[in-house]
Simulated assay, not measured.
Amino acid sequence: MDQRLVEEWKRRLPERLNSSDSVEVHADDGIPNALLIHMDVAGRSKYSFDFRCTYMDSREVKVDLLDVEQDGIHVDEHTEPIQNLAEDYVRHIHECAQDLQDVTTQIYQG
């Protein structure tokens, strides 16, 4: 993963989230065109979400939910409240990818 793109994700993704949520973005060492995204939800729920965001090309990303924890303990991600939160975060990830199309176009074109 191009380090410029990782840095732009680190800068721009937090702008899409609630100001009290926190996010970490890293290149996925196992998949060259993917990012690992860890989000901690603000508030009493103490949920954290792990996603993989894989670039299919310069315009399209695939987002996979890898894990959900509550206060450090794995929880069932199939419950409605967790699915709703996950869908919201996936939407924000897709929006951020769209915001970064100028960067990805430069990288993919050389």
Results as ranks from 00 to 15, higher is better:
residue 40 D to F: 02
residue 20 S to L: 13
residue 95 E to P: 00
residue 80 E to H: 06
residue 84 N to L: 12
residue 46 K to Y: 09
residue 76 D to F: 14
residue 42 A to P: 03
residue 70 Q to V: 03
residue 85 L to E: 13
residue 45 S to I: 08
residue 88 D to F: 15
residue 76 D to I: 03
residue 71 D to P: 00
residue 60 E to G: 04
residue 60 E to Q: 10
residue 57 D to F: 01
residue 19 S to T: 15
residue 103 V to T: 14
residue 34 A to E: 00
residue 12 R to D: 12
residue 110 G to S: 10
residue 39 M to R: 07
residue 12 R to G: 01
residue 67 D to N: 14
residue 28 D to V: 03
residue 42 A to R: 09
residue 65 L to F: 11
residue 79 T to D: 09
residue 19 S to G: 10
residue 84 N to W: 05
residue 78 H to A: 07
residue 57 D to A: 09
residue 108 Y to F: 15
residue 71 D to S: 13
residue 58 S to V: 03
residue 66 L to G: 06
residue 92 H to R: 15
residue 62 K to R: 11
residue 102 D to G: 12
residue 23 V to Q: 11
residue 27 A to V: 04
residue 97 A to R: 00
residue 107 I to R: 01
residue 45 S to F: 13
residue 37 I to D: 03
residue 13 L to N: 04
residue 30 G to K: 11
residue 19 S to P: 05
residue 105 T to D: 15
residue 56 M to L: 09
residue 80 E to T: 12
residue 47 Y to C: 06
residue 103 V to C: 02
residue 102 D to E: 11
residue 83 Q to K: 12
residue 39 M to Q: 11
residue 5 L to D: 02
residue 63 V to K: 03
residue 74 H to A: 14
residue 91 R to T: 14
residue 83 Q to C: 10
residue 50 D to S: 11
residue 22 S to M: 09
residue 38 H to D: 10
residue 82 I to F: 12
residue 90 V to H: 00
residue 34 A to W: 00
residue 86 A to Q: 12
residue 2 D to N: 15
residue 67 D to R: 14
residue 87 E to W: 12
residue 51 F to H: 03
residue 50 D to K: 11
residue 51 F to P: 01
residue 55 Y to L: 15
residue 52 R to G: 02
residue 69 E to H: 02
residue 47 Y to V: 04
residue 83 Q to I: 14
residue 63 V to M: 06
residue 84 N to R: 13
residue 33 N to A: 03
residue 88 D to M: 13
residue 22 S to C: 08
residue 109 Q to R: 13
residue 101 Q to P: 01
residue 99 D to T: 08
residue 5 L to E: 00
residue 110 G to F: 05
residue 39 M to N: 06
residue 107 I to W: 01
residue 69 E to W: 00
residue 99 D to Y: 06
residue 102 D to K: 08
residue 47 Y to P: 02
residue 74 H to T: 13
residue 3 Q to A: 10
residue 92 H to D: 11
residue 88 D to I: 07
residue 11 R to V: 07
residue 20 S to R: 15
residue 21 D to S: 10
residue 103 V to W: 00
residue 58 S to H: 08
residue 58 S to W: 04
residue 83 Q to D: 07
residue 105 T to Y: 15
residue 52 R to T: 06
residue 9 W to A: 01
residue 73 I to C: 05
residue 77 E to G: 12
residue 15 E to N: 14
residue 106 Q to G: 04
residue 73 I to L: 13
residue 37 I to L: 10
